[in-house]
Structure formats: structure tokens, C-alpha cells
Design a protein around this nucleic acid. Structure first.
Length: 85
DNA sequence: GCGCTGACTGTCA
DNA sequence: ATGACAGCCAGCG
């Protein structure tokens, strides 16, 4: 656990309801534009219930994945916030 | 400390 | 537009 991970948590936590951020965006704001993959890794392995990771999607607009029921559940959650892929 | 893995991304065929 | 490749990073065994 390094500073980068903390930053990522804070940033994702600050994503307003009804909006989404790409892994790349989060990584960039966290201080590491090249760590998009690491961000995804944090969600995948070190899932943090404090952050709405379902609002983090791929840069191309696809969901990418979700460790709380799969892309299906993720899409549903986003749909509930007014976001449709 | 090393190597593998993955919810990524951009580029090429 | 769709599929394959290579490059990057943090976490875990």
C-alpha cells in the first residue's frame, strides 16, 4: 500500500453520483498517468467498500469488470444513476 | 526481492 | 469495426 493507492481511493470516492471516470483518468489524477492498470488491479484485488468502484469504467466506454456481481450488476448500478452504455 | 497476474490503453493489421 | 500486440504499474505468492 503506497501513496498512489490512497490517492486512488480518495479520487474514486469523490466521483459524483451520475458520473463516471476512466481508469486512466483516475490514474492520472492520482499522479501516475501510466498506472491505469494498477488502478484496475487495486479494485480487483484490494476492493475497498468505501469507494464506488462501479463508477470507474474503461476509457473506451465499456464497463471493464466488477467484483461484486460482474459487469451485469455494474451496468445496472450505473443505469440507476442515469448512465447507459 | 523476483516473477506472474490483471476490472487498462493505444496502436497496428 | 473487430481482433491481436506490446507497454505500464501496483499487489501477491
Amino acid at each position: 500500500m503506497n501513496n498512489f493507492t490512497i490517492r486512488v481511493q480518495e479520487i474514486v470516492k469523490k466521483i459524483p453520483r451520475g458520473e463516471v471516470r476512466s481508469y486512466k483518468e483516475v490514474a492520472t489524477e492520482a499522479g501516475n498517468p501510466l498506472a491505469a492498470r494498477a488502478v484496475a488491479n487495486i479494485m480487483a484485488k484490494n476492493y475497498i467498500p468505501d469507494i464506488p468502484c462501479h463508477r470507474v469504467i474503461r476509457s473506451d466506454g465499456t464497463l471493464g469488470g466488477y467484483n461484486r456481481g460482474g459487469e451485469k450488476a455494474k451496468k445496472h448500478l450505473l443505469a440507476g444513476e442515469g448512465i447507459v452504455i
